[in-house]
Design a protein around this nucleic acid. Structure first.
Length: 942
RNA sequence: GCUGAAGUGGUGGAAUUGGUAGACACGUUGGACUUAAAAUCCAAUGUCCAUUAGGACGUACGGGUUCAAGUCCCGUCUUCAGUACCA
């Protein structure tokens, strides 16, 4: 029997036990109710885990273990989001295949995760880069290709149904989400179209489609850059020039689901801030589309406005400089001006344009539009405050009601007619919808915002120049990446038109390449593959040499983005080895959805939006049983590092202790946090013998204060360059996994950002030692069959109640202090009763499972503690007969008095007033009022 | 600018419904044990005044409601996160 709390030995023993006995393997069938606890799976980076990473995993593990104690069949899986850029970049630098890098990194992650003692069901592990997994990513892509979105039924439907409708009715009756430049055709015309033309038209309706997209192309790096990778018009990395280039890329028609993604938020228990982010991202605005005729031209300008009620206030129109009508309508006299302006805006990056909000610029096209009602001419301008990518890229400008229009009109001396009753607009625009009373506006006069809007839309419909419209900010998502280490598309091209490979031939495995860089002709890395063509006869990937455009065709060279594989993994965990489906119907009907999802808030508008989109699509197709996949979601905060600094006196090799700086010129330098103790004292010898930096400090002189060198401290993000990264491996070996788990929870509320400071871990570590001592000492096990005392029972049940409430409220930090209080009290009570100490282990087991298992088995239990029932709270043990009342005077507590709880209000008042301390406080005054709240407080006023 | 979250001792934080502000820890100080250190144990620890008794002040700031406010209301400031010329 182990008598000392030898945590390293105990933790290794139980981790081995759990693995061997598959303690946490979840079955897809059970008499127990199900509970699905999910973590956002990690990208296995080369740096391994630091202490910040497991925070969310520890929280979800506590919850999963708690649910097992409560009798649930718990699914708690883990896997890897293992496609991604770092492994590819490493491949470019070293030539090592990303698959090898990934495999190594996963091994490190697994080792690190295992030693923290998570109750993951590793039999269900998934890796997005594994062909048996991405087979299903490719499969979903094919389903999206074969679907269109029917606005009438508000769901995705099979593309073959659309073809049937085209063949019988043409596209006049279809209410679909599609590209906006669709030609209309009759059934007869459709049937006469060539196959290629039919394919082109269908592509405009499919939920994933090819589109020309403008990208930031960096020829020197041979890659597409994201907006934030460009600084001052050149690449952040290397400073190479960047051009806007049109590329044909796959897109996902997520905009079809905008309304359902918005509505769905009402049905799920996610944090308000996260839902708000998604709402903003979807950006719904309700208004009208209005058509303006261009004078002396057959062109028309469509605009979207949220204020159709202000239609009579329009005094000019503004087009985005990129608007396709600009060149068509500009008059010869204005052409030079307009060309200069268009060129100037094209040169500015999108980011520059967005950042520079204050500068007003624009140009007059010389053309005029016609007001739909007054028929007055309206000058048409171009200006870069109008964005080509939102709405129609054109606005009707109402300077009296919109700040930007007002500023623009002011700058270019355009008239600002006032159409608001009783409002002064000489200084600024008036945009308060609620207080609006329309004037000067013909049939809208005297109406408020709501009424006028309705009427304006009605009148526009009457003359066929507008209608009510809802606009969304949400853009379709580009789905092509010019990368190697991602899912290949199951797509080949015949005569330039994309064709899907039949599902039974999946997965299409990533080909081998010589080089992971783009080709010299600017093609994506897969362009380097020499075996990357599709043979439609044999249905296999064959050498490019065989391409004959008859039976052998070229395959797609792009790969899918990072979010593809992470958009359905939660479903795959339900049945991860299934060869025929994402998961069997039985498995999905059993597990249905995630009951608790824990992860970072940085995925608010990425992963968490895309995955909801795919889930809704798969729901429409009958693949998954629920519309939303995660009932509840919690964001864990980040653990920050506590950096340490030494201060070098400028121009010398002398370092001043933090307290000695005063007004001397010093340069703060980061030092490794491991050389600093709990009192901020530096281990100078340690620093000088450091393998990496020892040389730098070898001859340095350290000026001490009170015999020690004190470092400066600051809270920063954990990062290698700040030398404040703490590796969980070190914590586990020095203090044990249970201490790490408890400490991460003890640091503060789960959602909050908080600094890590290794020094504080001794607090929870001492608690575990103290706990151990309740059960065993040098003479062996101390636990007896003695009957528990009243105090023992009170402590236990108080703890049961608090811990249960805490777990259900995700307030894990306060449970840890509750455990400490319980251990302190039971130690003081010299409790040795098994009736108390055994159930206490179950309470602690979710938090500190190793020590709980060990003591549990030492108490004679054969089975693992993991499914032992959670102790039941009995309120009768907490019933008190008296209360130590705080007695306050004018709200200030002065002393306390022990009084029976069953005492009446009047009796309490009498007892308190009779007390000599009360008389002392009153000093002869007569109290005006005495407030008695039985069981709580007594307050004397006067 | 907008949206969301948050400001409490030297530090991390607690106070779930308005009812003893600072639980539980870290750190600090003093003490015990020890040749010594570590470990362990005990005590004190919001600030200020006071020898004690006790008192004043105190939850970012300014007001208010209430017998009673960290908690509710109004206004201001600061920090963090997200987002942004969205018509």
């Amino acid at each position: 029997m182990i008598m000392k709390y030898n945590f390293n030995e105990i933790e290794a023993k139980w981790q081995k036990y759990w693995a061997k006995n598959q303690t946490f393997k979840a079955e897809n069938k059970s008499d127990k109710p199900k509970f699905y606890v999910l973590d956002m799976f990690p990208y296995p980076s080369g740096a391994g885990l630091h202490v910040g990473h497991p925070l969310g995993y520890i929280a979800s593990d506590i919850y999963a273990r708690y649910k097992r104690h409560q009798g649930f069949n718990v699914l708690h899986p883990q896997g890897y989001d293992s496609f991604g850029l770092p492994a590819e970049q490493y491949a470019i630098q070293t030539g090592q295949h990303p698959a090898i890098t990934t495999k190594e990194n996963i091994a490190t992650y697994r080792r690190q995760l295992d030693q923290i003692g998570f109750s993951f069901d590793w039999s269900r592990e998934v890796r997005t880069s594994d062909p048996s997994y991405y087979k299903w990513t490719q499969w979903i892509f094919i389903q999206l290709f074969n679907s269109w979105f029917n606005n009438d039924t508000n769901k995705a439907e099979d593309i073959s149904e659309l073809e049937t409708i085209f063949a019988t009715e043409g596209n006049g009756t279809i209410n679909a989400v599609c590209d906006d430049n669709i030609e209309s055709f009759s059934a007869e015309e459709w049937n006469g179209f060539s196959s290629k033309k039919k394919q082109k038209i269908l592509l405009q309706y499919r939920l994933t489609y090819l589109a020309e997209t403008e990208v930031n192309w960096c020829p020197a790096l041979g890659t597409v850059l994201a907006n934030d990778e460009i600084v001052n018009g050149v690449s952040e990395r290397g400073g190479h020039s960047v051009i806007r280039k049109k590329m044909t890329q796959w897109s996902m028609r997520i905009s079809a689901y905008a309304e359902r993604l918005l509505q769905g938020l009402e049905t799920i228990d996610w944090t308000d801030s996260l839902k708000e982010s998604q709402r903003n991202w979807i950006g719904k605005s309700v208004g009208a589309s209005v058509t303006f005729k261009v004078k002396e031209s057959d062109a028309v300008i469509d605009v979207f406005t949220t204020r159709p009620d202000t239609i009579f206030g329009v005094s000019f129109m503004t087009l985005a400089p990129e608007h396709k009508l600009v060149s068509q309508i500009t008059t010869p006299e204005q052409k030079a001006d307009v060309d200069v302006y268009v060129l100037a805006t094209a040169k500015r990056s999108e980011r520059d344009r967005m950042a520079d909000v204050k500068t007003i610029s624009g140009a007059f096209t010389g053309a005029y539009a016609e007001h739909p009602f007054t028929k007055e001419p309206i000058p048409i301008w171009i200006g870069d405050y109008v964005l080509a990518g939102y709405g129609t890229g054109a606005v009707m400008s109402v300077p009296c009601g919109d700040e930007r229009d007002y500023a623009f009109a002011n700058y270019f001396n355009i008239p600002i007619p006032n159409i608001f009753d009783g409002v002064d607009i000489s200084e600024e625009a008036f945009s308060d919808k609620e207080k609006t009373v329309i004037g000067n506006s013909d049939f809208l006069n005297g109406m408020n915002y709501k009424k006028a809007t309705k009427r304006a839309i009605y009148e526009l419909e009457q003359i066929g120049q507008g209608e009510g419209k809802t606009n969304y900010r949400l853009r379709d998502a580009v789905f092509s990446r010019q990368r190697y280490w991602g899912e290949p598309f199951p797509v080949y091209y015949v005569d330039g038109m994309p064709q899907m490979i039949a599902a039974e031939h999946l997965p299409i495995k990533l080909p081998e390449v010589e080089k992971y860089l783009p080709t010299e002709t600017g093609e994506p890395p897969l362009g380097n593959a020499i075996v990357w063509a599709w043979n439609t006869k044999t249905n296999e990937v064959v050498s490019n040499d065989l391409i004959d455009e008859k039976t052998v065709f070229p395959l797609e060279l792009n790969t899918m983005p990072g979010w593809a594989g992470s958009s359905f993994y939660f479903n795959r965990y339900m049945d991860p080895d299934n060869q025929n489906e994402i998961a069997s119907k039985d498995a999905m009907d059993y597990w249905k959805d995630v009951d608790l999802y824990i992860g970072g808030s940085e995925h608010a508008t990425g992963h968490l939006l895309y995955s909801r989109f795919w889930q809704k699509f798969l729901f429409d197709k009958g693949v998954v049983p629920v519309n939303e996949y995660a009932k509840k979601l919690i964001n864990q905060g980040m653990i920050l590092g506590t950096s340490a600094f030494v201060y070098r006196e400028e121009g010398s090799n002398t370092y001043l202790s933090a307290g000695l700086i005063e007004d001397k010129k010093v340069q703060p330098l980061h030092v490794k946090v491991k050389y600093v103790n709990a009192s901020d004292e530096l281990d100078i010898e340690g620093l000088k013998s450091d393998g990496e930096f020892g040389e730098d400090y070898k001859d340095a002189e350290f000026i001490l204060e009170d015999g020690v060198y004190k470092v400066g401290r600051d809270v920063e993000k954990m990062s290698k360059s700040k030398y404040n990264v703490v590796n969980p491996d070190d914590i586990v070996s020095d203090y044990g996994a249970d201490s790490l788990r408890l400490y991460e929870m003890f640091l503060g509320p789960l959602e909050q950002y908080k600094p890590w400071n290794t020094a504080g871990i001794t607090g929870v570590h001492n608690f575990l030692k103290k706990l151990w001592k309740l059960y065993a000492d040098d003479n062996g096990l101390k636990v007896t069959d003695a009957a528990p005392t009243k105090d023992n029972l009170k402590t236990l049940h108080k703890t049961i109640k608090k811990v249960q409430e805490d777990i259900e409220n995700f307030s894990f930090n306060t449970s840890v202090s509750t455990f400490m209080i319980a251990a302190n009290e039971l130690t003081a009570q010299k409790c040795s009763s098994k009736d108390i100490l055994e159930p206490l282990l179950v309470l602690i087991s979710p938090y500190a499972p190793h020590i709980a298992e060990e003591l549990w088995s030492q108490l004679g239990n054969i089975e693992s503690i993991s499914t032992a029932p959670f102790p039941e709270f009995d309120a009768s043990h907490l019933v008190e007969s008296s209360k130590n009342y705080p007695i306050s005077f004018n709200g200030k507590m002065r002393f306390t008095m022990e009084l029976p709880l069953d005492m009446s209000k009047d009796a309490i008042e009498a007892a308190v007033l009779a007390n000599e301390k009360t008389q002392e406080q009153l000093a002869g005054r007569t109290p005006k009022k005495v407030i008695v709240v039985p069981g709580k407080i007594v307050n004397i006023v006067g």
